[in-house]
């Protein structure tokens, strides 16, 4: 038996929004640690990994590890039936083929129960080693979204150059070139507005904007985004979900022909 309850459906709705354009089917792995999901996009270029920790839930019961194979479109459609303020309960039997989604209004006057058919999915899991990165940039997530969107008007790729104290995002295309420089904040009152740049060694890598724009669908989950970059390894774009977990995206750099 698996059953968990979140005080607000909003966070799970936003999590589904962050995933649905990138992956069509996925497996939620349920264990005593919480819910987790890892999936490559259909072209196997990028990877998304989600962790929702037990401590962030109102209640969490998992008698036995289970894998819930879901169609992301379907789950997102059902999640949209919840109001943001509703509390949400997810429930599934150990060998069941259904996931129950129960939405309860804050005043307790309305309870909606949906049952979603689960899928038997065999999804390849990749082993992601823990590693140190050459550079870690933290910046307002809305700013990063804006940069990716704006540079998409110029080219298909963004070149990210990190040096001490700042980052250059640049793009080249048939119509012209663009360069956006973001400087590390010197003094910020609100942590969400801060830009921090940690540099162990400067890096200069190129990434496909198409995927970065998919990743920025997670923007409503967190005021800040972190970009972890090292030469010749995938970029990690991470959004922390307060008190609950994270959504992390991995994207291989483009390599010069």
């Amino acid at each position: 038996m698996f059953e968990c309850r979140l005080p607000k459906a909003e966070v799970l709705k936003k999590t589904m929004d962050a995933l649905k354009d990138l992956i069509k089917e996925a497996v939620w792995d349920v264990s005593a640690q919480g819910l987790s999901l890892q999936s490559m996009d259909s072209s196997h270029v990028s990877l998304v990994q989600v962790t929702l920790r037990t401590e962030g839930f109102d209640t969490f019961r998992c008698d036995k590890n289970i894998a819930l194979g879901v169609n992301m479109d379907t789950m997102q459609k059902l999640m949209k039936c919840a109001s943001n303020d509703d509390n949400i309960t997810l429930k599934s039997e150990d060998n069941g083929d259904l996931l129950s989604l129960i939405f309860e209004s804050p005043n307790g006057e309305k309870t909606s129960e949906y049952e979603m058919k689960l899928m038997d999915l065999d999804i390849e899991q990749l082993g992601i080693p823990d590693q140190e990165y050459s550079c870690t940039i933290k910046m307002p997530s809305g700013e990063f979204q804006r940069i990716c969107r704006d540079l998409s008007n110029i080219g298909e790729s963004v070149n990210i150059t990190v040096v001490k104290g700042g980052v250059d995002f640049s793009a080249k295309g048939d119509i012209g070139n663009a360069k956006i420089h973001v400087t590390e904040s010197s003094n910020v009152d609100n942590e969400k507005d801060a830009v921090t740049v940690e540099v162990n060694e400067p890096v200069n890598l190129t990434f496909a904007l198409r995927y970065l724009n998919f990743f920025t669908k997670a923007t409503p989950l967190s005021g800040q985004v972190s970009l972890s970059i090292s030469p010749d390894v995938p970029l990690v774009v991470a959004y922390e979900i307060e008190d609950l977990g994270h959504v992390k995206y991995f994207l291989a750099p483009k390599i010069e022909n």
Binding site: M40, L126, G127, P129, S157, P234, L251, A252, E256
Partner: peptide, 14 residues
């Protein structure tokens, strides 16, 4: 020109 490499190249399939 630049090439987009897949994520599998970097991480092992478990």
């Amino acid at each position: 020109d630049s090439w987009q490499v897949g994520i599998i190249i970097y991480y092992l399939i478990l």
